[in-house]
Amino acid sequence: MNTISSHRVIVTALLVAAIACYLLIEPYINSIILAFIISLLVYPLHQRLEQKLGSYRNFASFLSCVILTFIIVLPLLLVFGAIAQQGARFSQTLYQWVTHGGVQEIFNHPWVVKAMDFANTYLPFSTIEPSEIAERVAKISSQAGTQLVGFSAKLVGDATAFIMDFFLMLFVLFFLLRDYEKIITTLRHVIPLSRSQEDRLLEEIEKVSKSAVMGSFLTALAQGVAGGIGMWLAGFPGLFWGTMIGFASFIPIVGTALIWIPASTYLLLTNDISWGIFLIVWSVVVVGSIDNLLRPFLMQGSSGMNTLMIFFSLLGGIHLFGLMGLIYGPLIFAITIVLFNIYEEEFQSFLNRQDKS
């Protein structure tokens, strides 16, 4: 067997083995990738611990994982507990408001009456009857308690799955931190690129991983805090609705408006006009400016990625991968750009000849 045939057999066998390995770890791929990305973020802290602890590399990795657990898990448990309490109180308040004629009061508002008349006169829909809508809202609100119990059960199930995934991620992170230098050296050795090209590729992966996490999650946190303050000042449960605003910020195009527009409309229709105007102005000026200014600033580290590319990377990432797409999308785009730049440099003479032909 000649050398070329031998190489083909080896490469084919390697590809088959790699696919088989991927199928084995596919159910846990998100935890593994998240552990890799977090290792890039926390490695500077881990390095300091290693320097102070000397040869105790296992203990340094364990300590880094414990610190990360206290930073992430404990605050989340406290926040989720407070959110559940505020959510239960809001559900009870909503039920009482509906059963005491709150919906009918809104439908009697002059603005709503005019809007209904316009819709029934000019829009090609069946006639909108306020009494039917009020009946449906009352039915939904009467089921709110049951729905809240179901939601709480789902939340407990999701939290359990999150905790299991988190501890799996910690398990992987422990080995990634302990053997970080060895893993990077191995990657450099097996990637068939020059050292400068490997440096560019690995640096871009690290840069985009950091910017994607910072750009998406810190922006959501900032918008949630700002939105929660605005909702609290306007008379709503601040922690609960601030959390909802933080989650809504991940939704492309609509974003936080999914929360503050109905809340502002409710205030305007219940004659809290000053607070309704305040909430609109606060949400547009403060909460909206965070998304417009902070997210592009935090994600500007991605080489060659303008705002439009970042937008489509986030949009496509969410569509394909769900919440993890906020990291995967920008990462895929950035790696593609780096590989395209490497291709352009490697084939520059050929491309120049093609331009002149």
Rank of each mutant, 00 (worst) to 15 (best):
S216I: 12
S216T: 15
S216Y: 10
F217W: 09
F217C: 06
L218T: 09
L218P: 02
L218Y: 11
T219K: 12
A220F: 10
L221T: 11
L221R: 10
L221C: 12
G224W: 04
G224Y: 06
V225G: 01
A226W: 10
G227M: 02
G227I: 02
G230E: 00
M231A: 11
A234V: 10
A234G: 06
G235T: 03
G235W: 03
G235E: 09
F236P: 01
P237Y: 03
P237L: 06
P237E: 02
G238C: 04
G238P: 00
L239M: 11
W241E: 00
W241P: 02
W241N: 01
W241G: 01
T243W: 04
T243Y: 05
M244H: 05
I245Q: 08
I245G: 06
G246P: 05
F247N: 03
F247C: 06
A248H: 13
A248L: 15
A248Y: 13
S249R: 14
S249V: 10
S249D: 15
I251V: 15
I251R: 14
I253T: 10
I253G: 01
I253L: 11
V254W: 00
V254P: 05
G255E: 09
I259E: 04
W260F: 15
I261H: 05
P262I: 08
A263V: 03
A263P: 09
A263S: 13
S264L: 12
Y266T: 06
Y266V: 00
L267D: 01
L268K: 02
L269A: 09
L269Q: 03
T270H: 07
T270D: 11
T270V: 15
T270R: 08
N271K: 10
N271G: 05
D272C: 11
D272M: 14
I273C: 08
I273W: 12
I273H: 14
I273Q: 12
S274E: 13
G276R: 06
G276W: 07
G276I: 14
I277P: 12
I277C: 15
I277V: 15
F278R: 05
L279V: 12
V281P: 08
